[in-house]
Structures are given as C-alpha cells and as structure tokens.
C-alpha cells in the first residue's frame, strides 16, 4: 500500500513490447511468463508456472499492471480481481485461453 509511486514507472520493458499479439496457447503462456519475469526482474527460466505470483513478491501494484497489460494484449476487458482469482501463470493462462476461445466464432475453433 505504501510502496514507491514510481515502481511501475521503473519497469524496463515498454508497454508496446507487452502488447504484441500471441498466436496460440503456448505463446500466451510464454508471453505471460515473460511479463511476470520482467515485473519481478528475474530470468524467465526462474518463473515456475505453478507458483503463486504473490509468493514471488508480485504485489497488487504489479498484479494490476499485469492485468492492464493482458487487457491491452488480448483487447478484452477483464475482472479486476483476475490475478487473485487465478494466482499462478498456469491458472492465469488456462483461464485466458478459455476466454479467448469463447470469443472466437464457432467455425474458427
């Protein structure tokens, strides 16, 4: 609640980098892992997709920034509690894949 106000501003990756389109579930998962790694300032190889993001120290500020990045990336509006409801990369990716699939026309699935 009282962390430095410029924390997200220090994020090294540009927003436009985050917003490049993923092409499938594996890409979405990889993109998510990349985003989380960037926010945590860790190599992607250190991000275990089954570990809760909060356990890595991803606080609410980063959680909401991540949520905003996902909204931009997928061009959809998401629940503000997304990262609390789906707290790991695996859970988050699976949920987002369902949302993306639900948005596709039936013939495109």
């Amino acid at each position: 609640m009282t962390r430095e106000p410029t924390k997200t501003g220090n994020h090294p990756r540009k927003e436009t980098d985050m917003a490049s389109n993923a092409e499938g579930p594996a890409d979405l998962r990889a993109w998510l892992t990349g985003c989380v790694a960037q926010y945590l300032r860790r190599p992607e190889t250190e991000i275990d997709p089954t570990v809760r993001l909060a356990d890595y120290g991803l606080d609410s500020v980063y959680a909401l920034a991540l949520c905003g990045d996902i909204e931009t990336h997928l061009d959809m509006r998401l629940s503000e509690t997304l990262v609390w409801d789906y707290p790991t990369v695996d859970e988050l990716a699976a949920h987002l894949e369902e949302l993306v699939a639900a948005q596709q026309p039936a013939g495109a699935r």
Partner: peptide, 15 residues
C-alpha cells in the same frame, strides 16, 4: 502535478 507514471494513473482509473 505529482510526477506520477501515467501508466499508474491509468491503473487507478481502470481498476
């Protein structure tokens, strides 16, 4: 005025 990161302000508005 408070020199906040615009992205954070957008988060305040959106979420």
């Amino acid at each position: 005025r408070l020199a906040m990161d615009p992205k954070q302000v957008r988060t305040f508005r959106r979420f």
